[in-house]
């Protein structure tokens, strides 16, 4: 008999195919459910596992209502801000995420944000969609060349390192700020700054790859943006909470920042629409991991975790040990 699973979110095709083959699930391709519907489905099917994603807030109240026959809840995401980890832990419900598999994809998107912001991709695309019809003068609509610039990386973890690797192909000089200095073989010539404030004045381009949470909330604010050189380019594909958006908007309006490339926002999807009114922004709807390959890999990784726990093995990616 196949293990019983509820999938409370739409999944890419290959993930649905595996669910159909390996699990007993009423909607193998997933169905977007709210917490009430999820709980109802879990009860009705006596599900042993739950596959969900960041749309579903697993707060203490919801966790308390998850029946005991559910032996694992796997989120199809790296982030777990939507989960009350302490409550799940107290309740003895293993929760897993999907790290690693989206490193390359997110680093690719970060480079796209850097290039797109430097090279005015939003304005150029808008010109084309409006029909173009006028050639530009040689000094007109110029962007900033990204190659050869100094790139500051805040948080040189897996994704930060993957960004550094790509940036070296553009002859960028890598500076980084991290809670601790990394071994030389990981640094690969990058310059370490223990203090973000000392690094910022030397960054032509700044990209954030730090963890979220209270310790880093508003890391980039009026004071820290002011420490960047005039004309710097700012990119964030990690956590919206790292940025004081009021200060960001002011820096973009004044021209202190040449441009910004953003994939994440303080409030999603109800982000600050003033960002969309600025010409010098390059904006994505949280698409860091949005490739068929990566989303499939994330779904598969979540299923690997579920399969492991239901087979009596430890989870591969537990949120706590």
């Amino acid at each position: 008999m196949k293990p019983r699973l509820i999938v409370s979110r739409q999944m890419p095709g290959p993930v649905g195919a595996r669910i159909r083959a390996e699990f007993d699930c009423p909607w193998p391709e997933g169905r977007d459910m709210d917490a009430e519907e999820m709980l109802q489905q879990v009860r009705d099917t006596q599900a042993e596992a739950l596959l969900f994603s960041s749309h579903l807030k697993l707060d203490a109240a919801v966790i308390a209502r998850i029946p005991d026959h559910v032996r694992i809840a796997a989120t199809c995401s790296v982030g777990f801000e939507h989960i009350d980890v302490a409550a799940a832990r107290a309740r003895g419900l293993p929760v897993t995420n999907t790290p690693d598999v989206l490193t390359d994809c997110t680093a690719d998107l970060t480079m796209l944000l850097i290039l797109g912001a430097c090279r005015r991709a939003h304005e150029y695309e808008a010109i084309m969609r409006a029909g173009w019809r006028r050639g530009y003068g040689l000094g007109e609509m110029l962007g900033v060349r990204a190659s050869g610039k100094r790139l500051g990386i805040v948080g040189l973890g897996r994704i930060g390192q993957a960004v550094a690797r790509r940036a070296r192909g553009f002859n960028m000089r890598i500076l980084y700020n991290n809670p601790r200095r990394l071994p030389e073989d990981i640094e690969e010539g990058a310059t370490y700054f223990a203090d973000l404030r000392e690094m910022l004045p030397q960054c032509d381009i700044l990209t954030l790859h730090a963890r979220g949470g209270p310790a880093t909330a508003g890391l980039m604010n009026a004071e820290t943006f002011a420490l960047l050189p005039k004309g710097a380019v700012f990119v964030n594909a990690s956590r919206g909470g790292l940025v004081d958006e009021e200060a960001l908007i002011a820096a973009l309006r004044s021209g202190h920042l040449f441009a910004a490339g953003l994939d994440v926002y303080h409030n999603e999807p109800a982000f600050d629409l003033r960002l969309a009114e600025l010409p010098n922004t390059f904006l994505f709807p949280h698409m860091g991991s949005a490739t068929i390959e990566t989303r499939t890999a994330m779904g598969m990784r979540a299923l690997d975790n579920i399969a492991a726990v239901l087979a009596g093995r430890p989870p591969i990616d537990p949120l706590w040990n």
Binding site: Q10, M11, H55, D108, P269, M287, T291, I292, E293, R295
Partner: peptide
Amino acid sequence: GWTPTQLLGTQ
């Protein structure tokens, strides 16, 4: 809002 299948591109 974010969904696992929104605007999927290619790696």
